[in-house]
Design a protein around this nucleic acid. Structure first.
Lengths: 125, 125
DNA sequence: ACTAGTGTATTAGTTTACTATTACACTATA
DNA sequence: TATAGTGTAATAGTAAACTAATACACTAGT
C-alpha cells in the first residue's frame, strides 16, 4: 500500500479500514485478516496495524475477541453513522477550506459541477 | 496559530501562506513579515518558517531579496495558477475520496447541495 | 563606520512515529 | 496436552519534524 508521507501511517490505515467497511469489502460480523497478515499486506509493522485497530475498537467499529481475531461490529447503527460521518467530513473539510479562500457556496457548487463534467469527458475519452 | 498534529507544521504554514496570498491579504510585490516576526506570530521556530518559505521560493510564489526580506511574486501568471491549483486540489481530493467510497458523481453533488443548504440554515439561524 | 533589520546556516537536543524483535496470553483443534 | 493461530505488550533502535541558540551575511539608513 502507498502512503502519504505527510500523514501518520497508522492514521491512513484507519481510514483504509473505514473504507473497506463502508464499501462492504468487510461486512458486519466479518473477521478481519490477522494483524500479522495485515502487516504483510500493507507492508508495515504489526505495531502500526495494532495502533490503527485499537482506535477502531475504541470507536466501537471493530470488536476484538482475544485468541480469535478482530471482527467488524454488528451494530448497524454504528456502521450507518460511520458512513454518514466519513462522507460528511469530506464535504465539510473541502467546503471549509474553500470558504477560507473566499470562495462562495455557489462558486463551490459551480467548481464541482465543472470538475465532474471534465472528469466525465476524460473518463470516457 | 492552531495546528493539526497529523500534518507537519511547516506544511500547514505553507498552506496558510497560500491562503494569505489568494485572499489578497498579501498582494503581488508585498513584503512578508520578517521570518522572526512570523515565527512569533505563528508561535513556531524560525527554522520552521524558513522551511515553509523556502518551498514557496522554489515554487516561484515568493521571491527573496537577501538583507531586505521576502516578497510576493509580481508574476500574475504564477498567482492565477496558484489559486486555480489550490481550489482544484480541494475539489479533487474530496471527489477522489468519495469516489473510493463508491459515492457516485451525482451523489457527491447531492451531498454538497444538501450540506450547503444546512449550512445556510445554521448560519442564518 | 556603525547599527538595526533582514535572510541563512549550523549544531545540539527533544519528541513522535515507525520498525524490529521477542515474549506472553488466549482459543480451538488434532 | 501439544500445537497453530490469534491478539497484546515491552524493549530498543532509527528517522523526521521541531525547537533552541548562536553565528554569519547582506542591505539600508544614520
Amino acid at each position: 500500500m502507498q502512503f502519504d508521507d505527510k500523514v501518520p501511517i497508522y492514521y491512513q490505515i484507519k481510514k483504509y479500514l473505514y473504507k473497506e467497511i463502508i464499501i462492504e469489502h468487510l461486512n458486519p460480523g466479518d473477521k478481519l485478516p490477522a494483524v500479522r497478515q495485515l502487516a504483510v499486506d500493507l507492508t508495515v509493522n504489526v505495531n502500526t496495524i495494532q495502533r490503527a485497530i485499537s482506535e477502531l475498537v475504541e470507536e466501537g467499529i471493530i470488536v476484538t475477541q482475544r485468541g480469535k481475531g478482530n471482527f467488524v461490529t454488528t451494530d448497524m447503527e454504528k456502521l450507518f453513522a460511520l458512513k454518514r460521518h466519513v462522507v460528511e467530513e469530506q464535504i465539510e473539510v473541502m467546503y471549509n477550506n474553500l470558504t477560507a479562500l473566499q470562495v462562495s457556496p455557489d462558486e463551490v457548487l459551480e467548481y464541482l459541477t465543472t470538475y465532474i463534467g471534465q472528469r466525465k469527458e476524460q473518463d470516457n475519452g
